[in-house]
């Protein structure tokens, strides 16, 4: 019962997201009222479900890569053999935070061409930083006494990492992943300007054609997606502190 209640809020948002994706056509009357002058008021160049799927795909591929690389780099920089890299990695994570996503995206296009690939790379680079920063903070923040105790119990380096460090740092790491994914859901929409097809498409097309109804549809779905994912993260068992 309590388990169900815990997931009620994210489930509610997810249901709303699905309903909006599949039932956008039913709202034609509402959009007709918003955009009385246009002939077409429902974005029709692609299915909303397809756009949502592609949006999710791009964000999740980038997120998985960012988690692997980011957590991996932070773990490597806190091991004894990688300590030398620690100052550089943490400085890089804070400097990289200042790179505007549009600029990263724009710089990725000349190298990688138009389409989905530059978006994934830009999202990966951009999503990496909160993860690296938080993983470093989580691992560095562990009480040295705990580490000492674990070593005293005869645990090996790998055991300490898996059974002590990662579990203790998990809430902070998870908060970093949450920030990274939520930012990237919104940033991916900018990808529509470089030829990736996702929920940003209706927005760009709406701005170009002066059709507010399209913009509302894209924004609504991206907003619902961001809120659903964010509330899913907030219910994960480890995310107690934030």
């Amino acid at each position: 019962m309590t388990e169900l209640r815990r997931w009620a809020v994210p489930l509610g948002w997810l249901v709303l997201l699905l309903a909006a994706t599949l039932g956008m056509g039913q709202l034609e009357g509402l959009f007709r009222w918003i955009e009385a002058d246009s002939r077409q008021v429902i974005y029709a160049r692609a299915d909303f479900a397809t756009l949502l799927g592609r949006h999710l795909l791009v964000v999740s591929v980038a997120a998985v890569l960012a988690i692997l690389v980011g957590v991996g780099a932070a773990i490597a920089a806190t091991r004894r053999w990688g300590r030398d890299f620690l100052p550089l990695v943490s400085q890089l994570a804070s400097i990289g935070q200042t790179f505007p996503p549009v600029a990263v995206l724009a710089l990725a296009v000349p190298v990688l061409g138009f389409g989905t690939l530059p978006i994934i790379v830009a999202l990966l680079l951009y999503g990496l930083l909160p993860i690296v920063r938080n993983t470093l903070a989580g691992l560095e923040g562990i009480d040295p006494g705990v580490m000492e105790a674990a070593r005293g119990m005869g645990m090996s380096g790998g055991q300490i990492l898996r059974q002590v460090e990662l579990p203790l740092a998990a809430p902070v790491i998870l908060a970093g992943i949450r920030t990274s994914v939520t930012i990237n859901i919104a940033t991916a929409a900018i990808g529509a300007t470089v030829g990736a097809s996702n929920l940003g498409d209706p927005i760009i097309s709406g701005i170009v054609n002066g059709n507010t109804a399209y913009v509302v549809q894209g924004a609504l779905l991206i907003g619902l997606l961001a809120i659903s994912v964010d509330s899913l993260f907030s219910r994960l068992p480890l995310a107690g502190a934030r």
């Binding site: 859901i185 919104a186 900018i190 927005i203 701005i207 894209g218 924004a219 961001a226 809120i227």
Partner: peptide, 10 residues
């Protein structure tokens, strides 16, 4: 949570 391009468009 509203993506920036959407807010501009809205």
């Amino acid at each position: 949570t509203i993506p920036s391009i959407a807010l501009f468009g809205l």
